[in-house]
Design a protein around this nucleic acid. Structure first.
Lengths: 334, 334
DNA sequence: TCCATTTACGAAAACGTTTTCGTACCCTGA
DNA sequence: TCAGGGTACGAAAACGTTTTCGTAAATGGA
């Protein structure tokens, strides 16, 4: 490794002067400083992050908490945009877990062990005490798709997305609309549920109790079961809203099992807007989440906290997605 | 942050003794050591990684190079298994890029700036001089799905996978088999091509030149075009092998555009074995890569280099996947 | 009893930085 | 000429660890 000592030897000045030149301190001759910077650039010197942290208490390293669902495209894309945003601002990212080797270590301990400047809680079991501890600690934190008091959060505009979807399917003539939602205890689900009821109300759509069913996010089997229940109603819905695009796949196969088709017999809408949606035939109509914006806002909010520790930030930012229209909702004639 | 000094105050011994106790040095009274360890555990002390690195030159941090294709499930799953494997062995992982903030920094510089103990080159433009520099430098490195001299590598058994696929479709009666492959310059493609030719030869299958077409990995449009070319041949293939599951989707839509169906008119086989494959109807027959094993072997190989720097390791490990049979290949009667 | 060895601990240096403080030198003004 | 003040630089401490080395006390052997 090339150290500041090596550089100072080459430049013929002390390490103090080199450090000051590179950090733009005023008490160094402009010409000397410029020459030092040039040489540093030429030999490719970069101050070691670990040593620098020790003095400054700033690691320029951000921890991210991603429990285990990276396999879902939505989370992968969020991670990608977090990484992109962080690196463009000079921060690297490291995964935080609650074990290291064979010894247990809370998420918070892990973040401090790695001396993270802050943590993005991107996907986790939000009811886990360790996650709560992390979200409410002194360390700058931001949470995605959930709300904690004392911790800024980024959420999709879940209410609005539902009303937008409803307006669309209503415009195509649907009045019997079912909603299969994800885990009930999730903040996201609650928002979407209220968006669903709000939208239906505004459009004068009556929602039979049996039209609202629970499943789990990203579990095609669960939404398949819910779909089966819907299809066996004496008055089945003409359109089913799914909790996410994967879940639609489970519903679809159940629909086909009944000898029905999308959108001929049943219309369907997904959520998330993953790649898959546009590759399917019929193309799936879905609500595309703005993952780039979600990641970027999360990092913006986190770094604001890191760099201005005095100001208490307590925002909740919502990010608007967009309805991505495919061929999975047909027009119904009265 | 709780430091070793705090801990030593509580224990009533010097920091040296605490350090030695925690690191299992022999010259400390077993009872003292045990008591120190208990107190450390109780107050949740963990030595700060940055400070520790400064003395030991070991960061227990592994850099990973993932260019920009995290959006593809295959790479996400590899990342997930790398992370899992690394953390189970006490290592964290950090993304390596070639810029930090608004200043350029080579991959190698970045890894050294973050004092990584080693780097996994998981997905990159392998011809990029910076990647070559990284792969051939002194820092322990391992590369996935490519071969560099001087750098151990992990690859799927690409040759064997192709022969396995061929045996299967041949068994179902296919003799006119086309192969759409990915980028020609890629090592993976080369292996699969030779596996394809080898398999065909062994089975006595004649391959017209027009049956082997190039596309790009994960580009449905490209494979769609290739599919169109195949369908317009005077004697089109009865079965098409795709470079990956996404590409199959592009081919499928082209097939349907011609009024044909899978597997009724054309049989098809994918590659990778992503989730999507089993959710489609017909379920896609595909070759499932063993992502868990790939990630684990990569980390094993890397950490072996890290912990035994004297032994020159220069292995190439291949990981076997498995044919995942769906409904996209039909039996052909002579 | 006395010396030699072992045992158990602490002081201090070092890792690569940043930052505080001290100081030599050069100006300027009277 | 001399005081006063600015400019430009370096020495050294500090961050939280690990590790080397020194040493006091305890132990063992004759």
């Amino acid at each position: 490794m090339v150290t500041i000592k090596d550089l100072s030897d080459i430049c013929g000045v002390s390490v103090s002067t080199v450090s000051k030149a590179l950090n733009g301190q005023p008490d160094v001759n402009p010409e000397t400083a410029e020459s030092i910077r040039r040489i540093a650039h030429d030999i490719g010197y970069h101050p070691n992050a670990a040593a620098r942290y020790l003095k400054t208490n700033r690691s320029y390293n951000i921890g991210v908490l991603f429990a285990d669902q990276l396999k879902h495209e939505y989370f992968s894309l969020v991670l990608d945009s977090i990484r992109e945003a962080a690196q463009s601002l000079g921060y690297d990212i490291t995964f935080i877990s609650n074990k290291i080797g064979n010894s247990e270590m809370s998420f918070l301990k892990h973040a401090s062990y790695r001396s993270c400047d802050g943590v993005v809680i991107a996907q986790a079991r939000f009811e886990d005490p360790q996650v709560v501890e992390l979200a409410t600690c002194d360390l700058p934190t931001v949470v995605i798709d959930h709300v904690f008091s004392e911790c800024p959060s980024i959420m999709s505009e879940n209410v609005r997305s539902m009303t937008e979807i409803l307006e669309y399917v209503n415009r195509l003539g649907h009045r019997r609309i079912a909603f299969i939602h994800g885990e009930e205890q999730s903040a996201v689900t609650q928002k979407r549920l209220s968006g669903f009821y709000k939208g239906c109300m505004e459009l004068g759509i009556k929602v039979p109790e049996e039209y609202v069913l629970g499943a789990k996010y990203h579990k095609p089997k669960e939404s398949g079961l819910a779909t089966r229940a819907l299809l066996s109603l004496s008055e089945p819905p003409t359109c089913i809203l799914y909790p996410d695009d994967y879940s639609y796949m489970g519903g679809l196969s159940e629909i086909e099992k009944h000898g029905l088709s999308v959108p001929g017999d049943i219309s369907a809408v997904g959520y998330d807007g993953i790649h898959l949606a546009e590759m399917l035939r019929p193309r799936l109509t879905t609500y595309r989440q703005n993952v780039e914006e979600i990641g970027r806002k999360a990092i913006d909010l986190l770094i604001e906290q890191i760099e201005k520790p005095d100001e208490k930030i307590h925002t909740m930012i919502t990010v608007r997605g967009s309805l991505q229209i495919g061929d999975s909702v047909r027009r119904i004639l009265e």
